[in-house]
Protein backbone atom coordinates (compact mmCIF):
# COMPACT_ATOMS: atom_id res chain seq x y z
CA UNK A 1 0.00 0.00 0.00
CA UNK A 2 2.77 2.35 0.98
CA UNK A 3 4.69 1.73 -2.26
CA UNK A 4 1.61 2.50 -4.33
CA UNK A 5 0.96 5.60 -2.28
CA UNK A 6 4.57 6.72 -2.70
CA UNK A 7 4.45 6.20 -6.46
CA UNK A 8 1.08 7.92 -6.75
CA UNK A 9 2.19 10.95 -4.81
CA UNK A 10 5.46 11.07 -6.73
CA UNK A 11 3.51 11.37 -9.95
CA UNK A 12 1.52 14.22 -8.45
CA UNK A 13 4.67 15.93 -7.24
CA UNK A 14 6.33 15.65 -10.64
CA UNK A 15 3.15 16.94 -12.28
CA UNK A 16 3.20 19.91 -9.94
CA UNK A 17 6.84 20.58 -10.80
CA UNK A 18 6.06 20.36 -14.47
CA UNK A 19 3.14 22.75 -14.13
CA UNK A 20 5.21 25.31 -12.24
CA UNK A 21 8.08 24.94 -14.70
CA UNK A 22 5.70 25.98 -17.47
CA UNK A 23 4.92 29.22 -15.66
CA UNK A 24 8.30 30.07 -14.16
CA UNK A 25 10.89 29.23 -16.77
CA UNK A 26 14.58 28.58 -16.20
CA UNK A 27 14.19 27.87 -12.48
CA UNK A 28 14.29 24.06 -12.43
CA UNK A 29 16.61 23.84 -9.44
CA UNK A 30 14.66 26.26 -7.17
CA UNK A 31 11.42 24.57 -8.21
CA UNK A 32 12.83 21.16 -7.28
CA UNK A 33 14.02 22.54 -3.94
CA UNK A 34 10.64 24.15 -3.19
CA UNK A 35 8.90 20.90 -4.07
CA UNK A 36 11.28 19.17 -1.71
CA UNK A 37 10.56 21.61 1.11
CA UNK A 38 6.81 21.26 0.58
CA UNK A 39 7.03 17.51 1.07
CA UNK A 40 9.57 17.85 3.87
CA UNK A 41 7.27 20.38 5.52
CA UNK A 42 9.97 23.00 5.93
CA UNK A 43 9.88 26.77 5.67
CA UNK A 44 11.85 28.45 2.94
CA UNK A 45 13.86 31.64 2.76
CA UNK A 46 14.07 32.91 -0.79
CA UNK A 47 16.99 35.05 -1.72
CA UNK A 48 16.92 37.10 -4.87
CA UNK A 49 16.64 40.49 -6.44
CA UNK A 50 13.40 42.32 -7.04
CA UNK A 51 11.28 41.16 -9.95
CA UNK A 52 12.87 37.79 -10.58
CA UNK A 53 9.60 35.88 -10.17
CA UNK A 54 9.53 34.89 -6.52
CA UNK A 55 5.88 35.84 -6.01
CA UNK A 56 4.82 34.23 -9.26
CA UNK A 57 6.67 31.09 -8.24
CA UNK A 58 4.92 30.89 -4.89
CA UNK A 59 1.50 31.67 -6.33
CA UNK A 60 1.96 28.94 -8.89
CA UNK A 61 2.87 26.45 -6.18
CA UNK A 62 -0.03 27.56 -4.01
CA UNK A 63 -2.43 27.03 -6.88
CA UNK A 64 -0.98 23.59 -7.39
CA UNK A 65 -1.19 22.48 -3.78
CA UNK A 66 -4.42 24.28 -2.97
CA UNK A 67 -5.23 26.00 0.29
CA UNK A 68 -4.90 29.61 1.22
CA UNK A 69 -2.15 31.90 0.09
CA UNK A 70 -1.37 35.04 2.04
CA UNK A 71 1.28 37.62 1.59
CA UNK A 72 2.62 40.56 3.55
CA UNK A 73 5.25 43.14 2.74
CA UNK A 74 7.96 43.77 5.26
CA UNK A 75 8.36 47.43 6.13
CA UNK A 76 10.21 49.21 8.88
CA UNK A 77 6.95 50.33 10.54
CA UNK A 78 5.25 46.95 10.32
CA UNK A 79 4.10 45.77 13.76
CA UNK A 80 3.31 42.21 14.87
CA UNK A 81 -0.41 42.95 15.14
CA UNK A 82 -0.45 43.88 11.44
CA UNK A 83 -0.02 40.20 10.74
CA UNK A 84 -2.96 39.29 12.97
CA UNK A 85 -5.71 41.87 12.42
CA UNK A 86 -6.77 45.13 10.77
CA UNK A 87 -8.81 47.83 12.40
CA UNK A 88 -10.86 50.28 10.43
CA UNK A 89 -13.90 52.51 10.66
CA UNK A 90 -16.84 50.89 8.91
CA UNK A 91 -19.62 52.50 6.92
CA UNK A 92 -21.60 52.61 10.10
CA UNK A 93 -18.95 54.85 11.65
CA UNK A 94 -17.98 52.23 14.22
CA UNK A 95 -14.57 50.60 14.57
CA UNK A 96 -14.29 47.16 13.08
CA UNK A 97 -11.67 44.43 13.31
CA UNK A 98 -10.96 42.09 10.47
CA UNK A 99 -8.49 39.18 10.41
CA UNK A 100 -4.99 39.95 9.20
CA UNK A 101 -3.08 37.86 6.67
CA UNK A 102 -2.22 35.14 9.15
CA UNK A 103 -5.79 34.56 10.26
CA UNK A 104 -7.59 35.30 7.03
CA UNK A 105 -7.42 31.76 5.63
CA UNK A 106 -7.82 30.08 8.99
CA UNK A 107 -6.54 26.52 9.20
CA UNK A 108 -6.52 26.29 5.41
CA UNK A 109 -3.53 28.59 5.13
CA UNK A 110 -0.99 26.66 3.10
CA UNK A 111 1.50 29.29 1.94
CA UNK A 112 2.38 32.45 3.81
CA UNK A 113 4.72 34.70 1.90
CA UNK A 114 6.63 37.31 3.84
CA UNK A 115 8.15 39.65 1.31
CA UNK A 116 11.38 41.42 2.27
CA UNK A 117 11.44 39.95 5.73
CA UNK A 118 14.62 41.80 6.64
CA UNK A 119 12.81 45.15 6.40
CA UNK A 120 10.54 44.18 9.29
CA UNK A 121 11.39 44.87 12.93
CA UNK A 122 12.70 42.13 15.23
CA UNK A 123 9.31 42.14 17.03
CA UNK A 124 7.70 40.98 13.80
CA UNK A 125 10.42 38.39 13.33
CA UNK A 126 9.69 37.14 16.80
CA UNK A 127 6.01 36.60 16.09
CA UNK A 128 6.70 34.95 12.79
CA UNK A 129 9.27 32.64 14.30
CA UNK A 130 6.78 31.39 16.84
CA UNK A 131 4.22 30.80 14.11
CA UNK A 132 6.83 28.96 12.08
CA UNK A 133 7.98 26.79 14.95
CA UNK A 134 4.61 26.00 16.52
CA UNK A 135 2.23 26.68 13.66
CA UNK A 136 -0.09 28.36 16.12
CA UNK A 137 -0.94 31.86 17.32
CA UNK A 138 -2.78 33.32 20.32
CA UNK A 139 -5.13 36.12 19.41
CA UNK A 140 -8.49 37.35 20.63
CA UNK A 141 -8.28 34.93 23.54
CA UNK A 142 -8.21 32.06 21.12
CA UNK A 143 -5.46 29.72 19.94
CA UNK A 144 -5.33 29.67 16.16
CA UNK A 145 -3.68 26.76 14.37
CA UNK A 146 -2.11 26.64 10.92
CA UNK A 147 -1.18 22.96 10.58
CA UNK A 148 -0.67 23.09 6.82
CA UNK A 149 1.22 26.36 6.61
CA UNK A 150 4.62 26.77 5.06
CA UNK A 151 6.28 30.14 5.36
CA UNK A 152 8.17 31.50 2.40
CA UNK A 153 10.17 34.57 3.23
CA UNK A 154 12.20 36.67 0.90
CA UNK A 155 15.12 38.92 1.58
CA UNK A 156 17.10 41.21 -0.58
CA UNK A 157 20.76 40.72 0.22
CA UNK A 158 21.92 43.70 -1.78
CA UNK A 159 20.18 46.55 0.00
CA UNK A 160 21.27 47.06 3.58
CA UNK A 161 19.66 50.40 4.50
CA UNK A 162 16.65 50.30 6.81
CA UNK A 163 16.93 46.57 7.20
CA UNK A 164 17.25 44.31 10.21
CA UNK A 165 19.48 41.34 9.70
CA UNK A 166 17.72 38.12 10.55
CA UNK A 167 19.52 36.61 13.53
CA UNK A 168 21.06 33.18 13.23
CA UNK A 169 18.45 31.65 15.54
CA UNK A 170 15.75 32.90 13.19
CA UNK A 171 17.54 31.71 10.08
CA UNK A 172 17.82 28.29 11.64
CA UNK A 173 14.03 27.93 11.63
CA UNK A 174 14.01 27.93 7.85
CA UNK A 175 14.62 24.57 6.30
CA UNK A 176 16.14 26.05 3.17
CA UNK A 177 17.51 29.22 1.78
CA UNK A 178 17.03 29.12 -1.98
CA UNK A 179 18.67 31.62 -4.28
CA UNK A 180 16.46 32.82 -7.14
CA UNK A 181 18.53 34.28 -9.94
CA UNK A 182 17.67 35.44 -13.39
CA UNK A 183 18.35 32.60 -15.83
CA UNK A 184 21.31 33.34 -18.08
CA UNK A 185 19.88 31.50 -21.08
CA UNK A 186 19.34 34.05 -23.84
CA UNK A 187 16.24 32.32 -25.18
CA UNK A 188 14.59 32.33 -21.75
CA UNK A 189 15.58 35.93 -21.10
CA UNK A 190 14.12 36.93 -24.46
CA UNK A 191 10.89 35.05 -23.74
CA UNK A 192 10.54 36.73 -20.34
CA UNK A 193 10.77 40.13 -22.00
CA UNK A 194 8.95 39.64 -25.28
CA UNK A 195 6.49 36.80 -24.69
CA UNK A 196 3.31 38.55 -23.60
CA UNK A 197 2.08 35.55 -21.63
CA UNK A 198 4.67 36.44 -18.96
CA UNK A 199 3.38 40.01 -18.65
CA UNK A 200 0.08 39.20 -16.94
CA UNK A 201 0.97 37.28 -13.80
CA UNK A 202 -2.64 36.56 -12.80
CA UNK A 203 -3.43 35.01 -16.16
CA UNK A 204 -0.12 33.17 -16.13
CA UNK A 205 -0.74 31.63 -12.71
CA UNK A 206 -4.24 30.65 -13.77
CA UNK A 207 -2.71 28.33 -16.37
CA UNK A 208 -1.34 26.13 -13.58
CA UNK A 209 -3.48 23.07 -13.04
CA UNK A 210 -5.21 23.68 -9.70
CA UNK A 211 -5.11 21.34 -6.71
CA UNK A 212 -2.61 18.88 -8.11
CA UNK A 213 -1.87 18.02 -4.48
CA UNK A 214 -4.17 18.05 -1.48
CA UNK A 215 -2.59 20.52 0.90
CA UNK A 216 -4.32 19.06 3.93
CA UNK A 217 -2.86 15.60 3.25
CA UNK A 218 0.75 16.74 2.92
CA UNK A 219 1.58 16.44 6.63
CA UNK A 220 0.47 12.84 6.79
CA UNK A 221 2.16 11.91 3.55
CA UNK A 222 5.35 13.64 4.62
CA UNK A 223 5.51 11.21 7.54
CA UNK A 224 5.09 8.32 5.12
CA UNK A 225 8.07 9.54 3.09
CA UNK A 226 10.25 9.99 6.15
CA UNK A 227 9.47 6.54 7.45
CA UNK A 228 9.73 4.80 4.08
CA UNK A 229 13.03 6.15 2.76
CA UNK A 230 15.93 4.47 4.51
CA UNK A 231 19.33 5.75 5.46
CA UNK A 232 22.13 3.19 5.71
CA UNK A 233 24.84 3.22 8.37
CA UNK A 234 27.33 4.42 5.79
CA UNK A 235 25.05 7.28 4.86
CA UNK A 236 24.56 8.22 8.51
CA UNK A 237 28.30 8.23 9.04
CA UNK A 238 28.73 10.37 5.94
CA UNK A 239 26.13 12.89 7.15
CA UNK A 240 27.80 12.96 10.54
CA UNK A 241 31.16 13.73 8.96
CA UNK A 242 29.58 16.50 6.92
CA UNK A 243 28.16 17.95 10.11
CA UNK A 244 31.52 17.84 11.86
CA UNK A 245 33.13 19.44 8.85
CA UNK A 246 30.76 22.42 9.09
CA UNK A 247 32.01 22.96 12.63
CA UNK A 248 35.73 22.43 12.07
CA UNK A 249 36.34 22.64 8.34
CA UNK A 250 40.08 22.89 8.79
CA UNK A 251 40.15 19.38 10.29
CA UNK A 252 38.97 18.12 6.92
CA UNK A 253 41.42 20.22 4.97
CA UNK A 254 38.75 22.64 3.78
CA UNK A 255 40.04 26.09 2.92
CA UNK A 256 38.43 29.18 1.51
CA UNK A 257 40.54 31.60 -0.46
CA UNK A 258 41.36 34.77 1.39
CA UNK A 259 39.83 33.57 4.65
CA UNK A 260 41.47 32.70 7.96
CA UNK A 261 39.81 29.35 8.54
CA UNK A 262 40.74 29.36 12.21
CA UNK A 263 38.54 32.41 12.71
CA UNK A 264 35.82 31.86 10.14
CA UNK A 265 33.27 29.55 11.72
CA UNK A 266 31.73 30.58 15.02
CA UNK A 267 29.11 27.88 14.83
CA UNK A 268 28.50 25.10 12.34
CA UNK A 269 25.21 23.52 11.39
CA UNK A 270 22.75 22.93 14.23
CA UNK A 271 21.23 19.55 15.09
CA UNK A 272 17.93 20.92 13.80
CA UNK A 273 19.64 21.95 10.61
CA UNK A 274 21.13 18.50 10.07
CA UNK A 275 17.82 16.79 10.75
CA UNK A 276 16.15 19.13 8.26
CA UNK A 277 18.86 18.32 5.76
CA UNK A 278 18.15 14.61 6.17
CA UNK A 279 14.41 15.23 5.84
CA UNK A 280 14.99 17.09 2.61
CA UNK A 281 17.45 14.44 1.38
CA UNK A 282 14.85 11.73 1.98
CA UNK A 283 12.31 13.68 -0.07
CA UNK A 284 14.87 14.13 -2.83
CA UNK A 285 15.50 10.38 -2.85
CA UNK A 286 11.77 9.78 -3.08
CA UNK A 287 11.38 12.26 -5.91
CA UNK A 288 14.14 10.37 -7.74
CA UNK A 289 12.30 7.08 -7.23
CA UNK A 290 14.72 5.63 -4.71
CA UNK A 291 14.04 3.78 -1.48
CA UNK A 292 17.16 4.96 0.31
CA UNK A 293 19.12 8.14 0.65
CA UNK A 294 22.35 8.41 -1.32
CA UNK A 295 25.12 10.94 -0.92
CA UNK A 296 23.80 12.49 -4.14
CA UNK A 297 20.52 13.29 -2.34
CA UNK A 298 22.39 15.04 0.41
CA UNK A 299 24.43 16.97 -2.12
CA UNK A 300 21.22 18.11 -3.82
CA UNK A 301 20.02 19.85 -0.66
CA UNK A 302 23.26 20.44 1.23
CA UNK A 303 23.88 24.05 0.20
CA UNK A 304 20.27 25.16 0.51
CA UNK A 305 19.72 23.55 3.92
CA UNK A 306 23.07 24.37 5.57
CA UNK A 307 24.53 27.57 4.15
CA UNK A 308 22.18 29.96 5.95
CA UNK A 309 22.72 28.24 9.29
CA UNK A 310 26.47 28.77 9.44
CA UNK A 311 27.51 31.53 11.79
CA UNK A 312 30.63 33.30 10.63
CA UNK A 313 32.87 35.83 12.32
CA UNK A 314 31.38 39.30 11.82
CA UNK A 315 34.32 40.32 9.68
CA UNK A 316 33.26 37.74 7.08
CA UNK A 317 29.49 38.31 7.27
CA UNK A 318 29.47 40.72 4.35
CA UNK A 319 30.81 37.95 2.11
CA UNK A 320 28.80 35.15 3.68
CA UNK A 321 27.08 33.99 0.49
CA UNK A 322 30.27 33.39 -1.48
CA UNK A 323 32.22 32.11 1.53
CA UNK A 324 29.46 29.68 2.51
CA UNK A 325 29.22 28.42 -1.06
CA UNK A 326 32.96 27.84 -1.33
CA UNK A 327 33.22 26.29 2.11
CA UNK A 328 30.33 23.88 1.61
CA UNK A 329 31.63 22.87 -1.81
CA UNK A 330 34.98 22.25 -0.18
CA UNK A 331 33.32 20.09 2.46
CA UNK A 332 31.48 18.01 -0.13
CA UNK A 333 34.77 17.55 -1.99
CA UNK A 334 36.71 16.68 1.15
CA UNK A 335 34.39 14.26 2.91
CA UNK A 336 34.13 10.86 1.30
CA UNK A 337 31.61 8.05 1.50
CA UNK A 338 32.20 5.23 2.07
Amino acid sequence: MSDVQLADWRNHALTLESEVNKVVVGQQTPIRLITTSIFARGHVLLEGDVGVGKTTLLRAFTRGIGGGYQRIEGTIDLMPNDLVYHTYLGEDGKPHVSPGPLLMSGENLSVFFFNEINRARPQVHSLLLRVMAERSLSAFNTEHYFPHMIVFADRNQVEKEETFEIPSAARDRFMMEIPIVVPNDDAIMEALVFDTKFHNVDALVDTVKPDVLQFDELNAFSSVIQSSIEASDTLKKYALNLWKATKTPLDYGVKVSGVDMNRLVLSGASPRGMSMMLRAARVNAWLNNRNAVLPDDIHAVFHSTIAHRLVFSPVYEMRRTEIAREMLSGIVNAVSAP
Binding site: S232, T234, L235, R290, A292, L294, P295, A337, P338
Partner: peptide, 10 residues
Amino acid sequence: SRQVYFEPNA
Protein backbone atom coordinates in the same frame (compact mmCIF):
# COMPACT_ATOMS: atom_id res chain seq x y z
CA SER B 1 28.60 0.75 -4.44
CA ARG B 2 25.08 2.12 -4.10
CA GLN B 3 23.66 -1.36 -3.70
CA VAL B 4 26.31 -2.50 -1.22
CA TYR B 5 26.60 0.59 0.91
CA PHE B 6 23.35 2.54 0.65
CA GLU B 7 20.42 0.75 -0.91
CA PRO B 8 20.44 -3.04 -0.52
CA ASN B 9 17.25 -3.38 -2.58
CA ALA B 10 18.72 -1.60 -5.58
